[in-house]
Design a protein around this nucleic acid. Structure first.
Length: 289
DNA sequence: GCTCAGGCAGGCT
DNA sequence: AGCCTGCCTGAG
């Protein structure tokens, strides 16, 4: 690592990688704050799931984080970026405090969600996932993504168990709208197909779009049918790592109306907006449940 | 049964 | 530019 966010503790084992646990890194909050849909708890302080075509089990202790199913080269090429281990949350949190110094609600939300970190997930899978999320509930979003993966993804064998990667845009585009509809995605089927087609034929190059400023990136994503400002903002925040994104969903609307009746200008938050959004969302969604 | 879910498009004023 | 309504489906 060329920074001091983490220290590699053990990469000797063929298939396991351990690093020091960063300040403000809590798997329970990372996987429960609504940004990802394919990781599930497997014991205390441990989650298993699939991303970038790999199945991993990730666990934390007070001082360390271990990824099982992770070769040393996978850590550098996949997981370091996935878990944003190049981002120093202390700096961002200090910046939030300096921008909104007298905000008791935000102060409480920041303490409540202090283990949240934004991931940089696969762009295509995230786009699809949040198209599916509209007018839908979380258990169903998860099961639909699972169904699509089982039907069209690649097999991943781990300890004699079979898991499935999320399929490529090409595979989905070829499957067609009727096949997708038979998986019960409902009125979202044509939206998913439109996204898949545009990505597959390179009308939209999701990797190339990373060179754009967030405003222009949002505009490009919104040329896809079924992708409005909220879905696009989730993609820029959860896949492109754009912390200047501020997705406004019903929960955020609710928390802003409730605690900031005089209005809340998120545009002054700059590159801390996305994290503020997550703190407020997580606080409103889970504090009393 | 029946409401409603982490929005969006299309049609209306 | 801002309001309204319908939408697939199945958790709760």
């Amino acid at each position: 690592m060329d920074n001091n966010i983490i220290t590699v503790l053990n990469n000797n084992s063929e298939n396991s990688f351990t690093f020091s646990r960063p300040v403000g890194f809590d798997l329970n909050q990372i996987f429960d704050c609504g940004q990802s849909f394919r990781f599930s708890p497997c014991g205390a302080n441990s989650f298993s799931g699939i991303a970038h075509g790999k199945y991993i089990i990730i666990s934390q202790t007070d001082s360390a984080v271990t990824i099982d199913g992770c070769a040393a080269e996978d850590f550098e090429s996949i997981w370091k970026n996935y878990f944003c281990l190049d981002v120093d949350y202390n700096t961002i949190r200090s910046k939030i405090v300096s921008i909104r110094p007298n905000d008791p609600v935000l102060t409480e939300a920041m303490e409540y969600g202090k283990g949240i970190r934004l991931l940089r997930q696969d762009k295509w899978e995230t786009l699809c996932s949040f198209i599916i999320s509209q007018n839908n509930n979380i258990p169903r979003i998860r099961s639909l993504i699972e169904a699509i993966s089982e039907k069209y993804g690649n097999k991943i064998i781990h300890n004699d168990k079979i898991y499935y990667s999320f399929p490529t845009a090409e595979v989905i585009a070829n499957a067609g709208v009727d096949a997708l509809r038979s998986l019960k995605v409902g009125f979202r089927a044509p939206y998913i197909i439109d996204a898949a087609t545009k990505v597959a034929n390179r009308e939209i190059d999701l990797e190339q779009l990373d060179s754009l400023q967030t405003d222009e990136l949002l505009k490009q994503l919104m040329t896809i049918k079924g992708v409005g400002l909220k879905v696009a903002s989730c993609v820029t925040l959860f896949a492109y790592g754009r912390l200047d994104s501020f997705p406004i969903d019903v929960w955020i609307k609710r928390v802003l109306e409730k605690h900031y009746p005089e209005g809340f200008d998120h545009t002054v938050l700059g590159n801390t907006a996305g994290l503020v959004q997550q703190y407020l969302f997580y606080y409103e969604r889970y504090r009393n449940s």
